[in-house]
């Protein structure tokens, strides 16, 4: 399975943020999307998530050599700021999501098993989400996307609100699910990208560019990424 982006362009007023993105993302890999502030990472995600309409170009999935447009169920988006309905408890939130997506969920587990997966303690499961901490809300957001198991998972700085232990757990979780997904992980932290991701892609001047890993040393690879980020 591949996610193919062809010549995607997006402008706001006179500013062209995406100047023709061409890229192929493959299943089984975590892609680290790096870019400087304002480079257009979130814009690219919003276009793929169809919150924003692209001005030109297209994107689609290729499965068994067949092209098809992305369906709503194919994409999950985890934002850096957690978004959960505050009037529900954690358990009710999961129940609602499972209820409305039953036909798309394979290997359905019990709600408590999902909580276990995310290490959310029993006493927190029946609390209103508005009383959850920032990190816990983020866990819930991540969990819902993992239950839905979308083919393409977009992650926008999802680990920054976690403490080091939870962040490590989340990294392991992502590694364990990557074989069935295309995961695109946007971050500012190069070390995190290098640690977690299989491929590094840099978004600079509105263009997406893969950075070939430098087999000789990590330092040289980092320098290559930096050079690409700073390219004028």
């Amino acid at each position: 399975m591949k996610l193919v982006i062809e010549n995607v362009k997006k402008r706001f007023d006179k500013k062209e943020v995406l100047k023709g993105i061409d890229f192929e993302f493959e299943k089984g890999k975590i892609y680290g999307l790096l870019g400087r502030n304002g480079a257009g990472k979130t814009t690219l995600f919003n276009c793929l998530n169809e919150v924003l309409e692209v001005d030109e170009g297209s994107f689609y999935l290729v499965e068994d050599k067949q092209k098809r447009p992305m369906e709503d169920e194919d994409i999950g988006y985890v934002l850096s700021t957690p978004n959960v309905p505050e009037f529900l408890t954690g358990r009710e939130f999961l129940k609602f999501f499972i209820d409305i997506n039953e036909e798309h969920i394979t290997n359905l587990k019990s709600i408590d098993e999902y909580f276990e997966l995310m290490k959310i303690s029993e006493e927190d499961r029946d609390k209103l989400l508005k009383d959850y901490s920032h990190g816990m809300k983020n866990k819930m957001q991540m969990l819902v996307n993992i239950i839905m198991s979308p083919k393409v998972l977009l992650l926008d700085e999802p680990l920054t609100s976690f403490d080091v232990v939870v962040a490590e757990e989340m990294k392991n979780l992502l590694r364990s699910i990557k074989k069935d997904h295309i995961i695109i992980f946007s971050t500012h932290i190069m070390e995190l990208a290098l640690d977690l991701c299989d491929e590094i892609v840099v978004l600079n001047k509105g263009v997406l560019k893969p950075i070939e890993p430098d087999r000789k040393s990590e330092k040289a690879f980092k320098e290559k990424i930096m050079a690409s980020l700073m390219e004028e």
Partner: peptide, 15 residues
Amino acid sequence: MNCDHSMLTYRIYRT
């Protein structure tokens, strides 16, 4: 404020 603001970020909610 209390519901759709968060739920609309989930693609499945927008089907």
